[in-house]
Amino acid sequence: MSRLGQSHILAIGGGSFRPSPRYGFLEPSGLLRYALDLTGEDRPRLSLLATALGDDANWLLKMYGAFRDWDVEVSHLTVFPMPNVDDPREYLLEQDVIYVSGGSVANLMALWRLHGLDEALAEAWRAGVVLTGQSAGALCWHVGGNTDSFGPRLRPWAEGMGLLPYSCGVHYNSDPQRRPLLHESIASGELPEGYAADEGVGLHYVGTELVQAVTVEPEGAAYKIERDGSGGVKELRIEPRLLAS
């Protein structure tokens, strides 16, 4: 848990992992190093949640391989066909960082609520466990955003945990559907005002306040989207801090 006694969330728009140019397998990007460093621990305990991927065993295996050379203690929590630990709440509270994969955020939230993981994760966050994740693993901490959980055409979705009282946009510069639909959804009031992140960019919140954006992509950016008072929105660019890739 964070030694600073604060509640951290790093919501990543994309780019948590990259192919290793030397070996060809996935390796964590600097965004994951940033999340791990927030704990202040020399060997942080990192839990992987692949609920949004149906607890895909191949993804979990790749993730264990991705961290093979990092000084972290990796474990995972699954719910298929049943939880793989006796007490999921106790398990989550013992972690330093919890990373949530991309996939179906709608399915993820349904299963978390069924198993009480939403309440356990909220308790872990309040206790100082760093929460992070990409795409679905970023949307879930917010009120909502746009999702392809229901098909290739994106739909607004507002059934997230709401730890962060904002909407969230992910893959903002790589999927042409994302920006206009988020603008439309915020303008109509279907989603609250919020933030968005390009590929390779993370939104760092302390408590419920966005304190900075960080990036491993020199051209990447974050954005704040607000209603403009005349039925539209205004988008404000947030320059992120560049991390080592």
Rank of each mutant, 00 (worst) to 15 (best):
P156N: 03
L181Q: 13
G202L: 04
V201W: 02
R153I: 08
G231D: 09
G65K: 15
E73W: 06
T51P: 00
Q6V: 15
P192G: 05
R18P: 06
G145H: 02
G14K: 00
L203E: 00
A120M: 07
F17V: 14
V72L: 09
L26G: 03
E119G: 15
G15E: 02
G207N: 05
R113S: 14
G162T: 08
L92I: 11
F25T: 09
V79K: 10
P152A: 12
L92N: 03
Y166V: 00
I12Q: 03
G151A: 04
D87W: 09
G145V: 03
H142D: 03
L163K: 01
E217W: 10
A120H: 09
S185N: 11
L10F: 12
S135L: 02
E90T: 12
S230V: 10
A57G: 07
G116M: 10
V130M: 01
L164K: 01
S16I: 02
E94Q: 13
L38H: 00
L36K: 01
G15V: 04
H171V: 04
G133Q: 09
A57S: 14
L164H: 02
L182R: 00
G103C: 03
P240F: 06
G200E: 01
A122L: 14
F80I: 11
W70H: 11
E41D: 09
E199S: 06
R18S: 15
E73L: 15
A57Y: 11
P19V: 08
P21L: 15
A66L: 07
Y23I: 12
A221T: 02
M63Y: 06
M63H: 11
W157N: 02
A35S: 08
L181V: 14
A221L: 04
G229N: 15
R126N: 10
R33C: 05
I9W: 04
M63Q: 14
C140M: 11
Q177I: 07
Q134H: 01
D175L: 07
